[in-house]
Design a protein around this nucleic acid. Structure first.
Lengths: 341, 341
DNA sequence: GTGAAAGCGCTAACAC
DNA sequence: GTGTTAGCGCTTTCAC
């Protein structure tokens, strides 16, 4: 940087100022400095900057798994938006383990990050304590039902579960069920399931069976869960799935068994993945707006960084959208055909 | 750190030494320091460390898109392995744009990273130049056919294309085709397609049509491409797809049109995604071993960092695996039925 | 095996 | 609008 300053015949602090607030330097000085930077192929040293400023432009982003398409989408849109404001993403994953999360958070804090993005509202005591002792912005994403540390951006998984039950009931299904995987660790999926069960009962429908599996969600597990469901509860008319991969596997399983979807059994997913639109039949799903979560998170971090008044306990509800498709097409009521219920 | 030193009644440099090489400090001193660290809840400052050492433990990882499951898997396994050696992942994505990659690389270099991981062997002149002026390890992943900057870990996309043609030919298909998306940007997909065409011709089969689309690959695009293929080339017996999502869409499209897979048309994907095993019928695919790429990359970075002799121009072939499934089940030769060709 | 001292490249007051 | 100054918290020689 002093090389640049010497070349441009200004002081190092002017170069530093130009780099951080170009508008605070006179246009012509700015031009000379820009030229010197290009000429010397200057690459700044963020470590030195972070040390001097006691804060970096790194943002720690901690998700359970980036193999999960929803998180991948959010991380990507978050990164795009943060990148435009010259923030950088330091990535960590936890596999739904709070102890792992704590370790990742401690590591991230060592970089004196400008902000920390965590997934969900559940964290270990150690994580909370170490976060409380700093005053860096913390954004908790993908959940808003509960107490947040600082800022929360996401939606209510309870409402998703309820909306799924409502949708299946509205389309004329009475015997509902929920299948899902890894619900011991993925507590948000578990809460969607619980809310689904509660709402189904509240609607006066028979209590829906819930079948789970400990493995990470994929179409194979979905097929297995569907098989078990059909065998143990042949009366079921509609299945809500913990996510779209499970739903896809359920659809294939139904096909393999010669069951028509939705006539014999309706299927609904969660996640809004692209294949739900392309499948035969297209699968009804719930869009969580992962990209919006990323964008809003970036916006709040940038605003907070700019000193703008983003209050603590700010909660942004990004909502979700039920997307009805053919896999849950309205059922002709049995009474309409046979005259009985 | 000086607080820790004071508490442990040693000098700061001893604490520093303990943190970097615990074995270089006497066991009892080490124990006292460890106690002080725990007592004071000491969090190191990586910025200061990076500045003083003129190198950080951050590893810049640059992929086209983490929404792509193959890259997500690689980033995740890379991160897991690097994390165990106390390296941290600084993530960037390029959307297959070399100019974007150059910007991301420059940013990453500002962190004085311990290593840089780039995707593929194609980079802009600017990227090459700025990398050449440093001597940090550079690992190029997901491709090994071409000249690498430093270290390459991946597989040959040409061989994948050839293996796909071979597999379809061996299973008795004569009229082949290739469908794929975003092949203008995703040059590795384009090379799989080219090699597929070349090998098909070399096998004495009719030149296969190639149909592409500029959008990112997903099942919907796959269905569209399949539709266009069936309409323009009704004689086609087997389709190779640029990836599994395209193949899934193609399968659904075939179902919708009442075509039996594989009897009327065989389908083969690339990527080894979980749903290929669960679909009806299961889809033949090619496993790229993304997790292995991540692991090997981490291993090489750690070895190079430890001063072990990982030579420049080291190339690790992680290979790939053709997984034959029902969607390309052997075709009963027409001659066996009708006695003619 | 441990400590003293110098300085990494930058930022942020403050003075001009 | 620009320059001067004093560190930021660590690592790294080099003595001891």
């Amino acid at each position: 940087m002093s090389d640049v300053a010497a070349f441009a015949d200004v002081s190092p602090s002017t170069v530093s100022l130009y780099l951080r607030k170009p508008e605070a330097v006179s246009p012509q000085t700015g031009r000379v400095i820009a030229l010197a930077i290009a000429k010397l192929n200057y690459v700044p040293n963020f470590a030195a900057g972070s040390l001097a400023a006691a804060a970096s432009r790194a943002v720690g982003v901690v998700v359970p798994s980036i193999k999960n398409a929803a998180f991948a989408e959010t991380v990507m849109s978050l990164q795009t938006a943060l990148g435009k404001a010259n923030f950088h993403v330091l990535l960590g994953h936890t596999e739904y383990d709070e102890r792992e999360e704590e370790a990742v958070v401690r590591t991230a804090l060592s970089w004196a990050p400008a902000a920390l993005v965590l997934t969900g509202l559940g964290h270990s005591e150690g994580t909370r304590k170490v976060l409380a002792s700093r005053r860096i912005p913390v954004v908790e994403i993908f959940d808003i039902s509960g107490d947040c540390i600082d800022i929360a951006v996401g939606f209510s998984h309870e409402k998703v579960g309820e909306a799924m039950a409502d949708h299946l009931a509205e389309t004329g299904h009475r015997r509902l069920a929920f299948i899902g995987s890894r619900m011991q660790e993925d507590l948000r999926a578990a809460r969607r399931a619980s809310a689904f069960v509660a709402r189904t009962k509240a609607l006066g429908l028979p209590p829906p069976p819930v079948i789970g599996h400990p493995a990470p969600p994929d179409a194979e597990i979905g097929g297995m869960l569907m098989s078990r469901l059909i065998e143990s509860h042949p009366e079921v008319q509609a299945v809500a799935c913990s996510n779209d991969h499970i739903a896809l596997g359920a659809l294939f399983c139904a096909q393999r068994r010669g069951l028509r979807v939705p006539d014999d059994i309706a299927i609904m997913g969660f996640g809004g993945l692209a294949f739900t639109l392309a499948s035969t039949p297209p699968i009804s799903t719930v869009l969580p707006h992962g990209d919006l979560i990323g964008k809003e998170t970036a916006r709040l971090i940038i605003e907070r960084h700019g000193g703008k008044g983003v209050d603590r306990s700010t909660v942004v509800d990004t909502h979700f959208q039920v997307v009805p498709r053919e896999s849950t097409a309205p059922r002709v009521a049995a009474s309409a055909i046979t005259g009985t219920i």
